[in-house]
Design a protein around this nucleic acid. Structure first.
Length: 491
RNA sequence: CGGGGUGUAGCGUAGCCCGGUUAUCGCGCCUCGUUUGGGACGAGGAGGUCGCAAGUUCGAAUCUUGCCACCCCGACCA
């Protein structure tokens, strides 16, 4: 149960985030370092995210499958860059049995039960999937393979934050195999588009689409595409990635196919994923000092009805009205909660549903029944109006749609306002230290330059935008003919 | 993994420096009654391995050592 209020964003943004996650009943820390318990309300939001993405994946021709949690250690070492990228954060299974300690102190690992080949808990599944695809693919007729899996993965993190970075997290990973480079690149770009569309239309979060630099690229990828979102504190958050893997994994796992002429070729690959980190993006994009603000499309409860009454007779009348309204709204696929809990006063409920981000709240009292009205409050702008009961369902339906749009346009305005241009390092630092946000600047394309800028500004290149722009003068080296990229301090 | 901080009831806390009856207060929880248009009020009640473990001591929430967890700042990452 939540006690009053949370710290203000302006006072301590990190603390605000942590308190919000806890008090809105989204998640809590487990006793295992770096792991989280996603509570029913938080999981309900994740399920909405998951369900919608799943529909979109299937619309683009993908099928779900499931690959094992455990990966033989030897698989991971097959692709050099890949192992380099993940080795430092892998959990390893070395034994398969426990036994009672002889001194009665509890259970211990049975030293006689050591695994011959140790198993890695998947940090991502490229290796085990490509080891499998080898068996699935012989001819061009077997291609493309368009598979997705919903799974948990483990990356042993030093510093964790609920949803943003946890040692175990939930995600989906798409893994596709193609006969041609073009087709694989198209797939990579298509799925980036799916992510961008989902995040913008359903989460109401505007994103930048772009390419990662070599430094920021996925270990084992030829090219990493990403969508980047901007949080209210001016820091960027990578919301999704889509990788063109070239033939790296096909070569590492010897996956070839016979083309129409009977010639053997290595298969072209992609992988793409979004994780429970999206929950963090959702929270930090829209919410305010009163708590969570959810876009209607992802809200587990879209409308809450709170009765206001003195006598049991009044409650009965209000309940009749409320339950009828609930039924009508549910026919329109609007999820409704009627909260007639007698132990909580209306004021308490108002604050509670604000904390939980319920988009619309209806309060009904005796006065409303007399006047054929209800009190209607919007969570996003905190406005409150008395509206007629006539056509109430369609009023609410329209309003939910409006809120979805307003949240997106508000976030878009914020993104635009907080996108700046810098032509010198000093300028960039000045911007980053005051309002933060995205800073566009020219960069000569050299990793060392990127590294140096990072040291000087703590900002990384979030992406090289897909939209082409004219070249200019590198912010660090002054090289002419440099391309425009987007910097930010990031999560 | 480096630097700093915190850990006392479900949550937030006082006490710790300077060891000494029964560990403080608020919220929440349970019972009864009155209440209900922005986090109600009264009366009664329950709830504690003082993060864990060792040590010092006649005696430890308090002192010492080790460990664990969390938070903040760095390095690494989705």
């Amino acid at each position: 149960m939540s006690s009053k209020g949370i710290v203000k964003r302006s006072e301590d943004f990190s603390k605000w985030y942590n308190e919000l996650v806890t008090k809105a009943d989204l998640a809590e820390h487990s006793d295992v370092r770096g792991c989280m318990i996603i509570k029913p309300y938080g999981y309900a939001i994740w399920e909405k995210i998951k369900d919608q993405l799943d529909i979109m994946f299937k619309e683009t021709g993908h099928q779900n499958a499931y690959f094992p949690l455990f990966i033989p250690k030897s698989y991971l070492s097959k692709e050099a860059d890949h192992v380099e990228g993940f080795a430092k954060e892998c959990a390893v299974v070395t034994h398969y049995r426990l036994k009672n300690a002889e001194d009665g102190s509890g259970v211990i690992v049975d030293p006689d039960a050591r695994l011959e080949e140790e198993l890695i808990v998947r940090p991502t599944s490229e290796t085990i999937i490509w080891n499998t695809y080898k068996k699935w693919i012989q001819s061009y007729r077997d291609l493309p393979i368009l598979v997705n899996q919903w799974a948990n993965v483990v990356r042993w993190e030093m510093r964790t934050r609920l949803f943003l970075r946890t040692s175990e997290f939930l995600w989906q990973e798409g893994h596709t195999a193609h006969a041609t480079k073009n087709e694989a690149v198209e797939e990579t770009e298509k799925m980036l588009g799916v992510y961008a569309q989902f995040v913008e239309e359903h989460m109401a979060i505007p994103v930048l689409k772009g390419l990662k630099t070599e430094n920021e690229r996925f270990a084992g990828a030829e090219e990493t595409y990403c969508i980047e979102a901007l949080m209210q504190d001016g820091k960027a958050l990578q919301a999704g990635t889509s990788h063109f893997l070239g033939q790296n994994f096909a070569k590492a796992f010897d996956v070839t196919f016979a083309d129409k002429e009977g010639k053997k070729n290595h298969v072209w690959a992609t992988s793409w994923g979004v994780s429970t980190r999206l929950m963090g993006a959702l929270i930090m994009t829209h919410s305010d000092d009163k708590g969570l603000i959810l876009p209607p499309k992802l809200a587990p409860i879209q409308v809450v009805i709170v009765p206001i009454y003195k006598s049991q007779e009044q409650l009965q009348e209000i309940s009749d009205f409320a339950l009828q309204l609930k039924k009508e709204l549910e026919l329109l696929n609007i999820s409704v909660r009627y909260d007639d809990d007698d132990n909580k006063k209306p004021g308490w409920k108002f604050a509670e549903y604000e904390m939980k981000g319920v988009p619309l709240r209806i309060a009904v009292g005796p006065r409303d029944l007399e006047n054929n009205t209800v009190e209607l409050a919007r969570r996003d702008d905190l406005s409150k109006n008395t509206v007629s009961q006539d056509n109430l369902s369609s009023t609410l339906l329209k309003l939910l749609d409006q809120i979805q749009k307003d949240l997106f346009s508000k976030a878009s305005t914020f993104l635009k306002k907080n996108t700046s241009f810098a032509s010198t390092i000093e300028e960039m630092n000045k911007i980053l230290n005051s309002k933060g946000g995205f800073v566009e600047a020219y960069w000569n394309g050299d990793s060392k330059t990127e590294q140096k800028i990072k040291e000087l500004t703590k900002a990384t290149i979030r992406c090289i935008p897909l939209t082409k722009s004219s070249n200019g003068k590198c912010i660090l080296t002054g090289d002419l003919n440099s391309k425009k990229v987007v910097f930010a301090r990031a999560y």
